[in-house]
Amino acid sequence: MTKIHVTTTVNGETAEFLTDPRETLLDVLRNQLGLTGSKEGCGTGDCGACSVLVDGVLVSSCLVLGVEAQGKTIETIEGMADPKGDLHPLQRKFIEHAALQCGFCTPGVLVAAKALLAQNPDPTETEIRYWLAGNLCRCTGYDKIVRAVQDAAAEMRGAA
């Protein structure tokens, strides 16, 4: 099948790739751009492990085609820490609160939580739970994830 040339911006840098029109954005990120931090847990939009931001909107990258990235701005887990490597408060709090066990859901949860705090800096427990309802975690029972998000939100509000 003829491949299509796509130019996009990923984590602040210009990226170019050739993609089969059937390939998902997740495939392209993982297999062509080497950004394997986004995970595939289902490929059907049910688990959130592949969560990324496209033009600031939280999406499941397994449900977006690679060709749709043309001209867009994409943020993945690899772009979450600042360029010097200092962790985002959410990343720090996830480690401190032991909010990950196997860690496979973690990139998607972090990307989704960041999107939540961008629009709601002071979410309630219920708001956090409903926002993250699209991110499956089989290990933690979500308790420590919710606490880590609450704590990161508090720190970010304090710092603002």
Partner: peptide, 21 residues
């Protein structure tokens, strides 16, 4: 005590390598 886990940084930055990575 509850220190940070040694593989924590890799796992919150997407660097940790799983089966398909």
């Amino acid at each position: 005590t509850r220190p940070n886990r040694p593989d924590g940084l890799d796992k919150v930055t997407g660097r940790a390598r799983y089966g398909a990575d």
